[in-house]
Design a protein around this nucleic acid. Structure first.
Lengths: 325, 325
DNA sequence: TTTGTGTGATTAAACGTTCAATCAAAGGAA
DNA sequence: TTCCTTTGATTGAACGTTTAATCACACAAA
């Protein structure tokens, strides 16, 4: 490994001058800067991040903690974050909360011990990660008071709900995976708010809810709104087994716009979140915090986007629909 | 931040002794070790990884480069790797090849510049990542001469093929996503080898292949084997549109056992890879290389596992089946 | 007594970088 | 000339850790 000293010796100058020339900080003559830079290139100089980290007290590394790395959104978050990060010369170290609050806390500690300059945390559902000694941005949902930036899950819920309302549905079922999740609660709250009292909506949760669905439909529900695409796929399976077709007998919506949403038949109406924008904002906030320019939770929210596809249509005319129009 | 010096001062001893006591290296009296350790705990001492990295020339960080972080397998790889890594006190820095060979090379460079001690690379399909100045383990597939460890994709192909053969199918279609992918080619090669000449198998690729599928079935094919679960879902959509049912009219198989495989209806027969074992072996190999104990590509292969589910069954009796039994 | 052998601790340098403080030289103004 | 300012470079310390070399001392053997 070639160091600053070697360049200094090769050019016949002091290490400090080399450092100054390379970082553009002190006072160095233009011609000397040239000589040093080209010599650095010739020798294939790569600054030692370790040396720099020690001196500056910053590693240039950010920690990313997710509730569960098998989260279907993780790939997209990781990708955008990774791209945005290395355009700023930062690295992303991963940490997995493995589904529990204690593991989450340990993951945070490990990253802090590694000397990360900042943390990006998607909290374990239902938990509020303990405060760490480094700048931390929390990506969760609007209703979390600690939330720094997130998709507008409530708004997303309103979007699908409005879509379903516009199509003429007046009685629907809403299916969530786990009521502990603030994100899912916000999505459902958005739906409910939009439905207000023009649409009758029954909220169901988890496996029990999944089983209860067919009953709801027999009872007159003409659409099922879920809080995730995978859940929607499960619902579709359930419906198929009960000889109910989508969207013929019942309309169906998901959330997140995973790859499977367009692979399904019918393609799934869902709500997409702008992961790119969210992660970029998160990164901006955390770098700003690191620079010491920022304060507490800003709580911004990025709009979601409805992706209307084949799985939603007008409701089949039944006895329950007489009041429509 | 509390450093070794502060502990030294607090205990009234030299920094070197503290270092020795904490790492158990030099000669320190047992009682002194006790005093130092408890003082370290009291003060909340955390060793500076930067300082250590500078002195030892090792960062304790590994780089993980994937062809595309949105790869559906990435979450599982990242998770198991992350867990296995931090049980050894290592960190995982992520890099994204973003679908191109050049980006892959840049990602590798960035990680090397960051001072990673080793690299774990899932190569961009069809490429062979350039040699890096740090120990690198390549996770690809058996037919790649540079492969260090991977799932036995060929064996997986043989597994499904045998399953389909055992069920009595004698004419099938195989659908791959992209012939450039060595993994997919190996999977298909395994299928073909197993089918040998007892089952007639037509190999199709990509979107064109997807469209040609129905024709193949009209032509007597009773099963469709794909190289990925998502592809299988697409096939099912296509079949549904053509009023063909799974597995009634045609059996269907996937690959990888993604979450969607059990959410579908019917649940998808697929082949699971033991990501945990693969990543653990990869980690073991790379740490061994770093310790200087290992040589060139070992090329091990981890067996895959068939997951028989509802999407496969005996073929429907048709004119083409008269030779069966 | 001298010589030798452990034992437990210290010293000092090194890893590569940065940065404040310092210095030498040159040029301009008085 | 002397004094001041500017420019371009150097010195030296510091970040926190590790480690080889050294040292002081006690105790046993000669």
């Amino acid at each position: 490994m070639v160091s600053i000293k070697q360049i200094a010796k090769a050019v016949g100058v002091s290490p400090a001058t080399v450092s100054n020339a390379l970082t553009g900080k002190g006072r160095v003559s233009p011609m000397m800067v040239d000589r040093i830079q080209s010599m650095a290139k010739d020798l294939g100089y790569r600054p030692s991040l370790a040396g720099r980290a020690l001196q500056r007290g910053q590693t240039g590394i950010l920690g990313l903690v997710m509730p569960d790395l098998t989260n279907p959104l993780f790939p997209r978050i990781a990708q955008h974050l990774s791209i945005a990060a290395d355009s700023r010369g930062l690295g992303i170290l991963i940490g997995d909360s493995r589904g529990s609050a204690e593991e989450q806390s340990q993951a945070l500690h490990r990253l802090v011990d590694r000397g990360v300059d900042g943390l990006l945390v998607v909290p374990q559902k239902g938990t509020s990660p303990e405060l760490q000694p480094v700048p931390t941005v929390i990506i969760n949902t609007a209703s979390d008071p600690r939330n720094d930036v997130s998709a507008d899950h409530g708004g997303g819920g309103r979007l699908v709900a409005r879509h379903i309302t516009d199509l003429g549905h007046r009685k629907v079922a809403i299916l969530g995976g786990d009521p502990v999740s603030e994100v899912q609660r916000d999505r459902i709250a958005g739906m409910s708010a939009e439905f207000n009292n023009v649409v009758e909506a029954r909220v169901l949760w988890g496996e029990a809810g999944l089983s209860a669905l067919v009953g709801e439909i027999m009872n007159g529900a003409t659409a099922v709104l879920t809080t995730s695409d995978l859940l929607a796929l499960k619902v579709q399976s359930q419906l198929t087994r009960s000889k109910l077709s989508v969207p013929g007998d019942v309309s169906l919506t998901g959330f997140d716009d995973l790859p499977l949403a367009t692979a399904m038949h019918p393609t799934l109406t869902t709500v997409a979140q702008d992961v790119k924008q969210t992660t970029e904002r998160a990164l901006e906030i955390v770098t700003r915090m690191i620079a010491g320019e920022a304060g507490p939770a800003s709580g911004e929210t990025i709009p979601m986007r409805l992706e209307p596809r084949q799985s939603t249509s007008n409701p089949k005319q039944t006895a329950n629909q007489e009041e429509t129009l």
